[in-house]
Design a protein around this nucleic acid. Structure first.
Lengths: 165, 165
DNA sequence: CTGTATCCTTAAAGATACTG
DNA sequence: CAGTATCTTTAAGGATACAG
C-alpha cells in the first residue's frame, strides 16, 4: 500500500495481481456497494464515509483496471454513473468469500450483522465450496499450485470491458 | 491502510471486518504461502521479498487475530514456526477466489502463471460456484444483504484458536 | 538463521476549499 | 450534487544495524 514499495501488478502469481487491482481497504467495499446497486458518486461516499478525493482516486483506479465503467447518468443529468463491468461483477465470488469468512470469524456471538441472501427467497446462501474436476470437495490442504501456461482456460480479454445492464 | 484513518475492525459489515484482518497487500500472500506449507520466518521472507520488519509486523498481526499460531520449530531448534489456525485455514476459499479471478482477468493471453490444482490428481480445480439454499446457482445480481442477528449460524469462537497439524 | 529495533522516505488517507 | 485541486498528517513500507 505504500506505492514505491512492492508492485504487485506484474507478479507471476494471480493472487498478487488480483491484489494489485482490488487489494486495498476501500476497493472491495466499493465493489460491495456496486454489487448492491449503487452507482452514483454520492451514494458511495455516503455509504463508505471516506474523503471525496480518496473516493475519486479509487473509482478512477477501478475504471482504469476495467472493473468499473463510467456511463451517463440514468436520470438524464449530466453526471456520471459507475457500473460494474463483467470483470467487476465476477468479483461477487470474492465478495461472498470475504463476507462468509468475516461473518464466521469476526463477530462476537450475538452481534448484529448483515447476511447475504438469495434475492428471490431471502434465504441465506450456502457456504462456498471448492470442488475438484471430478466433483469431490476440496479442503485447504487438498490443493497446491502448479505451473502452466495461462492461455488455455481463460475467456477473451474483451469480456472485461463489457458493462452491466 | 493508513492506520489513524478508517478503522474497519468494528464495522457492522462482515466484509469490512474481514478486511481489517487480512485486507492489506501482504497478509493474503502470507496466507497463500502458509497454505502451501511454509512455516518459517525465512521461508516467508524469501518467498515474498519484503523487509523483515514488515514481515515481523504482519506475522504478529495475524497471530493476534488468530489466523496464525506460533508453535515450536519442528526441527528441534529454538525458533518459532507459524501455522494456520482453523480460522486461517478457512481463508483458502478466499485465496482461491482471488486466484481464480486474477487468473481469469489479470493475465495477458499466453503469459505464464500458476494454477491451483487438486493435490491428488493434479487436475485444475473447478471455478467456485455460489449456490442458494435450494442448490440453485447464484449470480452476481441474484443476491442482496439482509439484516439479521449474527448468532445463529456461526460455530464456536474457540475454533479459531485451534492449530493445524 | 531468527527475529527486533531504529531511522528514513513517501505516498495514501484525510480535511477542506473550490468549480461546474 | 458531483467532482477536482491543494495542503497536511502520519503511519506503512523499506533499509539496515543489531541481538539471541
Amino acid at each position: 500500500m505504500k506505492g514505491k514499495r512492492a508492485e504487485f501488478g506484474d507478479k507471476a502469481c494471480a493472487i498478487a495481481r488480483a491484489l494489485g487491482v482490488i487489494g486495498d481497504w476501500w476497493s472491495m467495499l466499493i465493489i460491495r456497494d456496486a454489487l448492491a446497486g449503487k452507482r452514483r458518486f454520492g451514494e458511495f461516499q455516503a455509504s463508505l464515509g471516506l474523503a471525496k478525493n480518496i473516493l475519486s482516486t479509487r473509482l478512477q483506479k477501478l475504471v482504469a483496471h476495467g472493473v468499473l465503467a463510467v456511463v451517463p447518468a440514468s436520470d438524464g443529468s449530466a453526471y456520471k454513473e459507475y457500473v460494474l463491468t463483467a470483470k467487476g461483477e465476477k468479483l461477487y465470488l470474492l465478495t461472498v468469500a470475504l463476507w462468509q469468512w468475516g461473518e464466521e470469524f469476526c463477530f462476537a456471538p450475538g452481534e448484529l450483522t448483515y447476511d447475504m441472501v438469495d434475492k428471490d427467497t431471502c434465504k441465506p446462501l450456502q457456504p462456498l465450496e471448492l470442488r475438484a474436476a471430478d466433483g469431490r470437495i476440496i479442503g485447504p490442504r487438498d490443493m497446491r499450485a502448479m505451473a502452466r501456461p495461462a492461455a488455455d482456460l481463460r475467456r477473451t480479454r474483451k469480456a472485461g470491458t463489457r458493462v452491466r445492464r
